[in-house]
Structures are given as C-alpha cells and as structure tokens.
Write a protein that binds this DNA or RNA. Structure first.
Lengths: 134, 134
DNA sequence: TTCATATTGATAATTATTATCAATAAAGTA
DNA sequence: TACTTTATTGATAATAATTATCAATATGAA
C-alpha cells in the first residue's frame, strides 16, 4: 500500500517536502509509483491528521510537514523553501479580536513570514544579485 | 493606455477583485482588451505601489485591493472571496519575537484568516451541505 | 472461487499565470 | 514633418501544480 510508503517518505524528510520531493524520494526506492498516487495519498494523510500541510502561497507548490501541530512558517521568496518559525502569540486572543462583517465565521488562521533564506542570501552575495527576485 | 483603465477598474470594485474580475469589468466597456494586458498592468500597478495585492493561497487566484496599506484578510474556503479583517496586533513586536535559524532575513509577513462567508453559510443552510467544501 | 470494493498507474484535463512575438502606438529627434 | 527608437498591446503558446478520469490491478469478504 503506497499510502504507507508516502507517510514514511514524509517522515524521512527533516523539513517541508513538496509533493514532488516526496514523489522523487519514493521513486528512488520503488521505481513504479505514480505521481497521482503521491498527491492522492498526501491529501488523504493530511485529511487523516497524520501529516501537516503548509499553506501554499502565490502559485507555489504545497509543502508537507511531519509536524501536525499548527505553527507559523517562513517562506523564502527566492527559492520557495519553507522553514519553521518559533514565535509564540496568543492565538485565542487574536481570534477574539477579529472583527469581521456579520456572518463570516472564522475557522482558522495562518501566519506566514516571507524573506530570504541563508542559502539564497549567500548566492545573492556571490552573484551580486541582491534584490533581484528568482 | 490600458494601465489607466486597469487602475480605474480596480478602484471601481469595493472588495478584492481577481485579475479575471478586473478583465471582465474592463471588457464590458472596452471590448478589445487582452487578458495578458490586464495581468501585466496589475503587476505593474502593484510594483508601483498604486494597488494592493492579496497573497493567494492554495492554488487560488490572486486578488487585488484598492487599499495599499498592509492589513490582514479573511478568505472564504468555499467561494474564495476575500474580506478585510479589522484586527490590530503589534507587527513590530511579532517581528522582534521571531526566532529563526541563523541567516533567514524576514522582510514581511501575512496574516490570513480562513472561514466561511455569510453568503456561503446561507447557501449551505439552504442545501443542507454544511461541512462540504466547494 | 466469486463478487464487490478500493487503490493504483498512466494520462488527459484544468486553472491561473507568464512568456513570446509580431503589430501597433507613442515619444524623441533631426 | 519624416524618421527612428522605445514601449505597450493583443493573440496565443507555454508552464506548472494539481485534479479528474478510467481501465487495470489488488484486496477483502462471502
């Protein structure tokens, strides 16, 4: 059952693999898995609450997470990699403070930081391409 | 110059039109504008700081904003519409509190609420489809 | 074994957006 | 004005991530 393979592959990553990362990780061991199956099982595992899913922004791919607790992430605007952010804030207070027009029921929220990761900053310095995106 | 048309069209919306919304709005008056031009000019206007852009999440289209100040939004997970959220929080304190692994430089952040908007809740009640997405 | 159900792989379809590129328009200059 | 250069546009192809389709295979129960 490829669902198990998919789950194990996600756990094998330290960080936040994309569906394609997971696909390639499994492919390297079991040659004949379909990418559709990986997408299907990642979605199912997320539904089951077995893995986390990082909200994807601005056309970037979704990333998955061995952590299942909700926590903020930082996305590198240059390479798209996702990092955990360690910041505590009062989620309930935030929810209480929200004042929406009548009738909108909030079920969750996401806090996403954007910036440039260590590696991309290094590359930019080397190439003298600071400030140039992608 | 279609850039002006595009700008005016965005201002004409109360809410947060998608590129396609803007395209249709202009088309209804000036039949022969290209969608590529609308995308191009929306991007340029955003670069110029003349309009705002709502971060798009999970494969949804981007939405644009006549407001240019950064503020949180709520996205309806059913219809995708975007709403302003009125909540004050200490952005600087949040930034200061962020503890990332060395070298990641944070340039901005987004706070996105998710939930169900008034209209979709109404529809769900009528259809008895509560809890069913899209 | 037999019948029903679930999962898979291969591939087509979808959707939002960007890239390409020739045609047109606008601006600058002699 | 006439000519040249630059910018903008429209039409359309390309891209990229993801989902849908559907026949083939696997699984499980009776």
């Amino acid at each position: 059952m490829q669902k198990e393979l998919t789950y194990d592959a996600v756990l094998r990553f330290h960080g936040h693999p994309s569906a394609d990362d997971v696909y390639r990780e499994i492919s390297s061991r079991y040659k004949s898995i379909s990418k559709a199956t990986v997408y299907r099982n990642l979605a199912a595992l997320y539904e089951d609450g077995k893995i986390g899913r990082v909200i994807s922004t601005d056309g970037r791919e979704a990333h998955f997470d061995h952590r299942t607790d909700k926590h903020p992430h930082a996305v590198c605007i240059s390479c798209g990699n996702v990092f955990d952010v360690d910041v505590s804030y009062d989620k309930d207070a935030l929810s209480r403070a929200v004042c929406m027009e009548d009738g909108f029921v909030i079920t969750s929220h996401e806090l996403i930081f954007e910036g440039i990761c260590k590696d991309c900053r290094k590359k930019e310095k080397e190439n003298g391409t600071e400030g140039i995106k992608n």
